[in-house]
C-alpha cells in the first residue's frame, strides 16, 4: 500500500528526516516510536502533505501513485487520513457541516453518490457510537472549546466517517487520561480491517497496549534505527530511549 524509500525532508532549512525506508501493507498496523525531536510528527506531516515541509530526497509510493505529487486534499480523497496531534479550532464551522462537505467530496471522488441530509445523519449517528461522542458536540464550532479528550475523539470520529485506507495517528494518546485513551483506542480497533492500514505515531508504549501493532519502528535523528514486533515497544518501555541512543552511537 505504502512504500517510503530514502525519504529526506527539511523545514525552514533544518534537516529533520534523513532517509526513511518503510513499507506498509494493507491490514497492517505499524507503530513509529522515538524520543522527542526524532522526526515522528514530521514523517506524519510529510505523508499528509503539510506544505511547510520540503522533501529533499526519496520517494513515497501510495497505491501505485507518487504521493508527493498530490495536494493534501487529493491525498485525503485517495484515502489518507491524519489524526492531528493538535486538532485545530475553527470558529464558525460546525463539525457536522464540515464533515458533510468532506464526506461528500470524498464520495464524489470515489464515484459514489453524495449523501443527502437524512442519510448523512444516519451515517453520523452510527459512527458517533464508535467513539462515544455526543451530537451536541458536533453541532458546535469545530473543536472550539473542546477538552483534549473531546478533540481526540472528534479526530477518530472523522476517521470513522471518512473510512480511510491509510490512517496516520499522530500522538493521538497525548493529553488523554486512561479512560479517554481506551475509548479512542477502542474506536480505532473497530476500524481495523484487512483492507486498511494504520500508522500509529507515539512517544509512549501505553497506547500500544490498546492498539496492538504488527510492527514497531524506532525513529532517531530522522532515521529508522530499529524495527521489530510488538515486543520491541515493551523493551523500549523497560530500557528507555537511551538504550537506542547508545546502541546507535556505538554502531
Amino acid at each position: 500500500m505504502l512504500a517510503i524509500k530514502n525519504l529526506s525532508a527539511q523545514v525552514n532549512g533544518k534537516q529533520i528526516l534523513n532517509g526513511i525506508n518503510l513499507e506498509v501493507k494493507a491490514g497492517e498496523v505499524h507503530a513509529i516510536m522515538g524520543p522527542n525531536g526524532s522526526g515522528k510528527s514530521t514523517l506524519a506531516s510529510v505523508l499528509a502533505g503539510r506544505e511547510e515541509f520540503e522533501v529533499t530526497d526519496g520517494t513515497v509510493e501510495y497505491l501505485g501513485k507518487n504521493l508527493l505529487e498530490l495536494e493534501p486534499d487529493e491525498r485525503a480523497r485517495e484515502g489518507i487520513f491524519l489524526a492531528f496531534q493538535y486538532p485545530v479550532e475553527i470558529p464558525g464551522v460546525s463539525t457536522i457541516n464540515f464533515m458533510k462537505t468532506a464526506v461528500n467530496q470524498v464520495r464524489e471522488h470515489r464515484g459514489l453518490e453524495t449523501l443527502d441530509a437524512v442519510s448523512f445523519l444516519g451515517l453520523m449517528k452510527e459512527k458517533m457510537k464508535l467513539v462515544e461522542i455526543d451530537q451536541s458536540l458536533l453541532n458546535r464550532s469545530l473543536n472550539e472549546g473542546f477538552s483534549g479528550g473531546e478533540k481526540k475523539r472528534n479526530e477518530i470520529f472523522q476517521m470513522a466517517m471518512l473510512e480511510p485506507k491509510l490512517a496516520i495517528l499522530d500522538e493521538t494518546d497525548s493529553g488523554l487520561d486512561i479512560d479517554a485513551l481506551k475509548i479512542v483506542a477502542n474506536g480505532v480497533n473497530k476500524l481495523r480491517s484487512k483492507n486498511n492500514a494504520i500508522i500509529v505515531v507515539t512517544h509512549y508504549q501505553r497506547l500500544l497496549n490498546y492498539i496492538v501493532p504488527d510492527f514497531v519502528h524506532v525513529l532517531y535523528k530522522g532515521k529508522i534505527v530499529k524495527s521489530g514486533g510488538k515486543e520491541l515497544a515493551l523493551e523500549l518501555e523497560a530500557k528507555g530511549y537511551d538504550w537506542i541512543k547508545s546502541e546507535v552511537e556505538v554502531a
Binding site: A48, G49, R50, E51, E71, P72, D73, R75, A76, R77, F81, L82, F84, P87, V88, I90, V93, F98, M99, T101, A102, Q105, V106, H109, Q158, L162
Partner: peptide, 10 residues
C-alpha cells in the same frame, strides 16, 4: 490545512 486534510478542496 486541517480542512483540506479531510478531503475538502482548497
Amino acid at each position: 490545512f486541517y480542512l483540506r486534510s479531510r478531503g475538502i478542496n482548497k
